[in-house]
C-alpha cells in the first residue's frame, strides 16, 4: 500500500477542534463535513487539497476530543496519509479504525516542508521526500493494526474475522 501527494504542513498540538470545529458535529453528510476540514487553522486547506495529498505535523497531532469526525473529515477531504512526530492516542485509534493511514516519524515530520512531494510505502514504513531527495524510516505498525488498516477499518476487519 502506498500514498503519494503534496504536503500540507502544521505544527504541534493540532487539536480536533481545529480539524473539525464542534459547530459542525451535527452534520452527518461526510462530504459536507469535509468541506469544513481544518478551517479554523487553515482556511485555504479545503480549496487547495487534492486527492492523495499528505498532512505532515509535529507533536501530539489530533489531541482533544474523541470525535471520529476529525479523521473522517481528513480522509474524505482526500488526504491519503498523515505523518507526525506523535499522535494523540484517541486520534491514533480512530484513524486506524476508519482506515486513514497514519505514520509516526519524528525526523520526517521535522524535515518535510509544505508543498514537498512525498511518497509513503506502508509495507516498509519508508517515507520519501521526492522534492528534497531524502528518505526516512517510519515507525512500523504492529501486525494486527496493519491488518485493520489493510481491511480499510475495524468494521471490515470484524466482518472478515
Amino acid at each position: 500500500m502506498k500514498a503519494e501527494g503534496s504536503v500540507f504542513k502544521y505544527g504541534d498540538n493540532v487539536d480536533t477542534d481545529v480539524i473539525i470545529p464542534a459547530r459542525y458535529l451535527n452534520i452527518q453528510d461526510m462530504k459536507e463535513l469535509a468541506s469544513h476540514c481544518m478551517e479554523d487553522i487553515d482556511k485555504e486547506f479545503v480549496e487547495k487539497v487534492n486527492d492523495g495529498d499528505i498532512i505532515v505535523a509535529n507533536r501530539n497531532f489530533g489531541c482533544g476530543s474523541s470525535r471520529e469526525h476529525a479523521p473522517i473529515a481528513i480522509k474524505t477531504a482526500g488526504v491519503s496519509c498523515v505523518i507526525a512526530e506523535t499522535f494523540a492516542r484517541i486520534f491514533y485509534r480512530n484513524a486506524i479504525n476508519i482506515g486513514l493511514p497514519i505514520i509516526e516519524c519524528p525526523e520526517a515530520a521535522q524535515d518535510i516542508e509544505a508543498g514537498d512531494r512525498v511518497e509513503v510505502d506502508f509495507d516498509s514504513g519508508m517515507i520519501y521526500d521526492r522534492t528534497k531527495g531524502t528518505e526516512y524510516k517510519g515507525q512500523p505498525f504492529p501486525e494486527f493494526m496493519q491488518k485493520i488498516i489493510e481491511a480499510e477499518g475495524l468494521v471490515n476487519y470484524i466482518n472478515q474475522n
Partner: peptide, 26 residues
C-alpha cells in the same frame, strides 16, 4: 466511551478511557 472525558471514572478506581465511534460500535 465515545467521548474523550470518559477517563473521569478513574476517580472511583475503574479503568476508563475515551475512544471513537467505531470502537464504540465494535
Amino acid at each position: 466511551g465515545a467521548d474523550s472525558h470518559t477517563c473521569t471514572y478513574g476517580a472511583l478506581g475503574a479503568f476508563s478511557t475515551g475512544v471513537g465511534s467505531t470502537d464504540m460500535a465494535a
